[in-house]
Amino acid sequence: MTLRPCRTALRRRAPEIALIDVALASGTGTRLRGGGFFWQLRRPARRSARETPSVEEVAGLIAPAATMIAAMMTAANLGARVTGSGFVVFTLGSLAWSAVGFASGQTNLLLTNLFLTMVNLVGIWRWLGRQRGYEDGARRAAERSRGAAAPSLFAASTLAGLPVSDIRGEEIGKTVDAMVECKSGCLSYFVVASGGIGGIDESLRAVPASLFECHADGLVLLMSAAEFEKRDTLDSAAWPARLPRAPRHEPEPASGGGRPSREQAHVTAPGS
C-alpha cells in the first residue's frame, strides 16, 4: 500500500500545537507523530454515467415513498376505490421493503414485510373487490331510481358523510350518522357536524329526520342556518336516546311521519 504524505492543519485549543505531518491511507488509521490516531472518512466513489443503480438502492427509494402515499390514501377514507388503491400502493411498498431486507441481509425486515404483503393483498380483495362491488351496485340502483316512476332511492351506507344545506341553499355541514327506530324502521334523527377544520373543533347537533328533504346531491334542512345554530350541541360520546324536541321557534314535525313543507319552514326563518 502506498502512503501519500500531506500536511494537515489541525486547530486545537492548545496554542503550542501547530502543523503536523500525517500520512493518510484510504479508509485506514495512521498514527500521528504526537500520538493519537487519525481516521479519514472516505467519500463514496462517484458512479460512472453508464453504471446502473443497484436493486437495493432503487427499492430503498420506492419503499418509503410508497408507504407514505398509501398511508394518506387509506386514512382519507374516500371510498372503496381510493382505499383499495391505497392497499395496492401499500403492497408495492412492502415488496420494496422486502427487497431491501433481502439485499441487506436484514431477516426481520424481510419476514415482517412478507407478512404485510399478504395482509395488503387481503385489503385489496376487501376494498377493490367486495366492497367496491357493493358500492357500485347501490350507486347504480340509486341512479336508475331517479328516472323510474318509483320513489328515488339512496344507499343507507351513504347516510354518513352526506352534505347538508339549509333552506336557502347555504352549506351547513355534513351528516355524521343517523339513528333508526328498531320497531318502525324509520329514521329518528340525523347528527350533523358543522364548523371546524378536518373534524377538529367541530360541533355536533341532532336534528329530526322529518326536517330534512333528500336530494341526489345531499340533504336539505328545512330551516335556516341561523336556526340550526340555535340547536343544542351534542357531546361526541353522548347522543340522545330519543328524538330531540324542537325548540319553540322551530316548527314541530307533523304527526304520522310527515314533514313540514318548504313554505312552512321558510315562514319561520328569521327575516323572511
Rank of each mutant, 00 (worst) to 15 (best):
T2A: 09
R4N: 07
R7S: 14
R11M: 04
I17W: 07
L19C: 04
I20R: 14
D21G: 01
V22Q: 06
L24D: 08
G29K: 08
L32W: 06
R33V: 12
G36I: 05
R42Y: 11
P44F: 05
R46M: 10
A49D: 14
A49E: 13
T52P: 13
P53I: 10
I62M: 06
A63Y: 04
A70K: 04
L78G: 06
G84W: 02
L92C: 09
G93L: 05
L95W: 04
L95N: 07
W97Y: 15
A103D: 05
S104T: 15
G105C: 10
Q106A: 08
N108H: 10
L114I: 15
N120E: 06
G123H: 04
R126T: 13
G129C: 07
Q131L: 10
R132D: 02
G137E: 13
R146K: 12
A148P: 06
A149C: 04
A150V: 13
P151M: 08
L162P: 01
E170F: 05
K174D: 03
M179W: 09
V180H: 05
E181S: 09
E181G: 06
S194E: 08
G198N: 11
E202P: 02
S203V: 06
L204F: 13
A209I: 06
L211M: 11
C214G: 03
G218P: 04
L219D: 00
L219E: 01
M223A: 09
E227L: 03
F228S: 00
F228G: 00
T233V: 11
D235G: 06
S236W: 11
A237K: 12
P244D: 00
R245N: 07
R248C: 08
H249P: 00
A254W: 01
H266F: 13
T268K: 12
P270L: 11
P270Y: 04
